[in-house]
Design a protein around this nucleic acid. Structure first.
Lengths: 163, 163
DNA sequence: GAAAAGTAGTTTACTAGTGAAACGATGGGG
DNA sequence: CCCCATCGTTTCACTAGTAAACTACTTTTC
């Protein structure tokens, strides 16, 4: 293993003493991903909250900003990994705040189209660089090589668990 | 990069077209960690829910099971990365269900001690192997080498963002 | 040894997210 | 051409989690 044991290593070794027959190797990856996400989320939420947004709203607005125009609510469900109900609520809230607007799709009238207003664009353009800077700061302890290897591994992981 | 672009690569390239001056490399790691966690959580919640628990309750009970005896609520906050209020609520709920019991700490009477009941132990011993099996299944697309490298990278990440 | 500061946990009032059911399209098969 | 299975979205009732204020102790400081 060659590194100082962390919380997950400690947990695994406790389980090994207790129930040696259960294979806990998956925790090495999944336990750490869940924990890292929880911690990162906590840290980054501070920056996002300063702009009066939460993580899901931020992700949603960013998706609209970078996607250019006309995204459907269904697509936003996938991007934010959340339920349709949550997306509906968020769209309503953000529309009320004047950050985005909805139009009906003419081809398929079950569907809707969502896009940012000028105010929404301006907000994203202000907040996005701040969040990126906060992320950079959180990763400052890792070398370029470490990040690259980690990014590759995570991409592999995502590919197997999605799609 | 040498791999088929994923959602994160796509997002980064859109941002690069839009605002080339902002450094988005952190998304390679953080974006993927957050997304992977969201997806994994979704998948694993099914297994945990079958036992009548949610992820946080499961983590809490597991911490008590493997830790042996007498854990404080404060320690459980750290383990589950959640607020004190959330822990209080969960402890109340799980105590009412007869899965754990609380005793007062004699040395420091601000503090409490929590431990599993026999029923709580039995439940964890039943559910934990099922969750581990579900995790293994999710990781089945990765080689041992891939998992090991990923686990190492995540450990580095956790070390820099925690403590 | 009393006042101030700090720590552990709980309560309260609130917000965000969920699953399930409902709803209005849509479009392919009989 | 009209069912009807399916789709994209919304509504509703509910659950879980939060921040901030509060209680109850303990430690520090002078």
């Amino acid at each position: 293993m060659k590194r100082t044991p962390d919380l997950i290593d400690a947990a695994r070794s406790q389980w090994a003493d207790l129930t040696p027959d259960v294979d806990t190797t998956s925790m090495d990856v999944i336990g750490r991903v869940l924990r890292a996400a929880a911690v990162l989320r906590r840290r980054l939420d501070v920056t996002i909250a300063e702009a009066g947004l939460n993580r899901a709203e931020f992700d949603l607005l960013c998706a609209l900003r970078r996607g250019g125009v006309a995204v459907t609510p269904g697509r936003l469900n996938e991007i934010t990994v959340s339920s349709g109900a949550a997306t509906t609520k968020r769209l309503r809230e953000l529309t009320d705040r004047g950050l985005l607007e909805r139009t009906a799709d003419q081809r398929d009238r079950r569907s809707a189209r969502v896009r940012l207003t000028a105010a929404g664009e301006a907000l994203v353009d202000e907040v996005f660089p701040q969040v990126m800077a906060a992320e950079q700061a959180l990763l400052s302890g890792l070398t370029a090589r470490q990040r690259e290897s980690l990014a590759g591994g995570l991409a592999d992981l995502l590919r197997t668990v999605e799609g």
